[in-house]
Design a protein around this nucleic acid. Structure first.
Lengths: 227, 227
DNA sequence: CGTGTGGGTATTGTATACAAAACGCGCTCG
DNA sequence: CGAGCGCGTTTTGTATACAATACCCACACG
């Protein structure tokens, strides 16, 4: 993507995730153009991407708002991600080359190093984790699958929870990745799928624990515009 | 979406699917602006959507081409659709109201009528079929799932194969839908999932039979730009 | 009171002009 | 002969002005 619209994308994303605006707030293209320092044209392009990723939503009359995710929304995203990424692991197990498996091992060594620092370097962990999962998705060799997952992977992770992981949580992640590599080395697609499944499902529960208990009723149905 | 960019979207889509251009051909924004009769701004918006749907692809230097799907690409889309739509059926089974189930029955009566005409009215069938599947996805009550499926559902169906269905194929579809409705009425999520799975997998084989035998090697890997 | 209607303001949508980047092609120089 | 360079042309990217639409508030009318 081109320079200005990429910059706008990153800036707006940071602005929204950084918490300078609250969920449900309205944003205007002019405002965002000022913040990002580019004109409305690339801003509109960036906004489209962020809508795709569901960080921003439009009202029925095309006004723009910061999305407001319920806990149920987030659980559903984890479920979908699990479904798709298990499939990716299965395909990857059949396709990874010896070199690619070695690369995964290296990534997980990096991840482990980040975890075993004291204190653990969460940013470094997250980057290694992202790279690890991305490598698997790449190896699945399915552009569609990659595209679908792109919308699901970053968003929940980034949702303020990053710093709530305990060192034990992080260590367990590293162990899961080790087992995943073992499954790949054995070319055992079923094993890979199962490990990926428990890995992601545990991630959901870690997340859920951090975010608080399940909401009573109030599963917000259709579009989530302002309050 | 707004008028001009919607018009552009429909026109470009028709232009590509109508076969006025070959897979792999380059398109330019100016060209498309002329064809659609709007300026490049809404054309660019429309093109983004079509890129998302993978009908168009960009080269590494942002030139625009008509996508060229291999048989393997299409099989993978069916697999993904099956995975997601089975999930939708499962969720729908738990959520459909009595009225919604009645609505599905009505849609399938319409579909059956289209099939039992002689000759069968394929366009009418496709429309009823689309509405039936959409109603299920709606009932699953997951905006993310809906969004992901939107990219997978229309595209392969539309790919010239529509007219290759035999009357038996169409009848079997209608029967599948009947069974799906029965599963919903029984609130049996496992049954619904299983029926949806076989329904879509059979659709793939019908498609595959029409399109010809499996290709030997040559699974096109990365982006599918021109020859 | 409540409802709806008007018009000024805010916001999004489209066209167009210009800037930046990529392509193609002929040329030079090893 | 072939690889690399320069430069005009094509194509995409960005800014900006203007058009269309939605919003908001005040006021009239039932």
């Amino acid at each position: 993507m081109s320079r200005a619209s990429e910059r706008a994308y990153a800036a707006i994303r940071a602005h929204v995730l950084g918490g300078s605006v609250a969920a449900g707030d309205q944003l205007t293209e002019d405002q965002l153009a000022q913040i990002t320092g580019v004109s409305r044209t690339p801003v509109r392009e960036a906004v489209r991407r962020l809508e795709d990723e569901l960080l921003l939503v439009r009202s029925d009359t095309n006004r723009l708002f910061v999305a407001d995710w319920s806990r149920d929304d987030i659980e559903e995203m984890f479920v979908l991600r699990q479904m798709l990424e298990c499939h990716a692991a299965e395909r990857a197990a059949k396709r990874l080359s010896r070199e690619q498996i070695a690369a995964l091992e290296a990534l997980n060594r990096e991840l482990t190093a980040a975890v075993e620092q004291s204190p653990p370097d969460v940013a470094r962990f997250l980057e290694a984790n992202r790279a690890f999962h991305e490598a698997i998705i790449d190896a699945a060799h399915s552009p569609r699958l990659r595209q679908l997952l792109a919308r699901l992977v970053e968003a929940p992770v980034v949702l303020r929870t990053a710093r709530t992981y305990s060192q034990d949580d992080l260590r367990q992640s590293a162990r899961d990745h080790d087992e995943l590599v073992a499954a790949f080395a054995a070319r055992d697609a079923d094993w890979a799928r199962a490990v990926m499944g428990s890995h992601l499902r545990r991630a959901f529960h870690t997340f859920a624990r951090a975010v608080g208990p399940k909401t009573e009723g109030a599963a917000n149905d259709r579009d989530g515009a302002e309050p």
